[in-house]
Design a protein around this nucleic acid. Structure first.
Lengths: 224, 224
DNA sequence: GCGCTATTTATACACTTGCACAACAAGCTC
DNA sequence: GAGCTTGTTGTGCAAGTGTATAAATAGCGC
């Protein structure tokens, strides 16, 4: 449908006003608009025009910052993964706490907002669904996954060391895989049906389950 | 590009030969072609023409069986979910075995082919990614998930009863949630990076982890 | 204020998409 | 084999797609 300019046959140049933003800002905005579009309507609904509309610009501008739509999508996915892993690891930097407390904090952080989030899950699922046919996506995922699992393995080693236990490499790996699965599985459940769980319930379940996996005696008295 | 008919200016009627298949067969073929298309190129790549080509028919025929593309996709998703839950539950019907063996068989079945499968995972992720914005998809998922979890909870109750333990409803629910997460998490890991694990390794990890979760003493002598 | 440049808009284009519909023929009944 | 039903094809169409490119203008250095 033509816009109102057609109805004013006068001398309307009527070109859209615009502002020049910084390059980094524009790229960021476009990536954010892309992620929002994908989260809401899937990859199919993320058209250049939709994305541009969300970012408050016209479609043509996208090509000025990204050589093709494919590049924009890849950068958006990279940004998403970066944010996810960054948040996930952030809970591990409590230098002073005991290994066990750090592990618990890690689990708690990963099983509450903002990591438990329907929008982020939708994005993850949408992109990861193409990992089977897109090798670059598959590699990006595997790197992120291994990095995550290595973090887990490191903390687990610390926790067990503090308990005077000396697992071999194979046992350590198995623990890390299992704990990673527990966190991932609870994350999926929480994202897909968050209202089925009371606040903090998933974290409680996760911590207990992981303690059982590691053969740790339950902590007493701490919090309820 | 026009087809070869243009190059033969004779009397070529040259209409494509076809066979009339049964209705159920055609619907099944179209659904299968849809799932294959989605698995390979995502929802965006699943166009009517692509699907028809895969099914060996022309695009127009699809409308004869499905009122719209949306309906076809919904039926395809329903078929996928049905197959998945059916396979997952199939391992539970060993009437005679002990509860613990049934649980182990259930876990083993869910962490090996054909349930661990990159194509199925790709499909699951692609569809579930839209659960956030499509309420009918979300409901379909939740029903499947709860059904699965209830199955788990029932077996867990049997296992614990056989050990003379009497968990209350809350403990039972927590166990079911955790075990479900373990299976789901390992399933995701296996589908996305199956070659990182030796055959049967995921099942071994899952069984051990679940036994730890339930506080069961490890079985001895059975298999390694 | 005055250019200049690069950001931004707007338009064009070739192509694809889902859907509609008319023409056709496969396979049944007689 | 004739006739009919309907499954199937082929074509058309309006809307939307990504990309290319020309035209405009915002905001900088001067």
């Amino acid at each position: 449908m033509p816009d109102a300019a057609d109805l004013a046959p006068m001398n309307t140049p009527s070109r859209r006003k615009f502002r020049r933003e910084g390059e980094e800002r524009r790229r960021q905005d476009l990536i954010e608009a892309t992620l929002n579009s994908v989260a809401e309507h899937g990859l199919e609904g993320a058209t250049l025009r939709t994305i541009a509309l969300r970012a408050g610009v016209t479609a043509g501008l996208i090509r000025h910052y990204f050589p093709s739509k494919e590049e924009l999508l890849q950068e958006a996915y990279a940004a998403l993964m970066g944010r996810m892993t960054e948040q996930a690891k952030a809970a591990l930097v409590m230098e002073d706490a005991s290994p066990r407390k750090r592990l618990a904090a890690f689990v708690t952080a990963n099983l509450n907002a903002p990591i438990i989030d329907a929008r982020v899950f939708s994005l993850w699922a949408t992109f990861i669904g193409r990992a089977g046919s897109d090798p670059s996506l598959a590699r990006a995922h595997r790197e992120g996954y291994l990095g995550f699992r290595n973090e887990v393995e490191a903390v687990v080693a610390e926790v067990l060391a503090a308990e005077q236990r000396e697992p071999d490499a194979s046992q350590l790996r198995h623990h890390a895989i299992a704990i990673n699965a527990i966190i991932d599985g609870l994350w999926v459940e929480g994202c897909l049906a968050g209202e089925m769980f009371s606040p903090g319930e998933l974290a409680t379940i996760g911590i207990k389950s992981i303690e059982a996996e590691l053969g740790l005696a339950p902590e007493r008295g701490e919090n309820q």
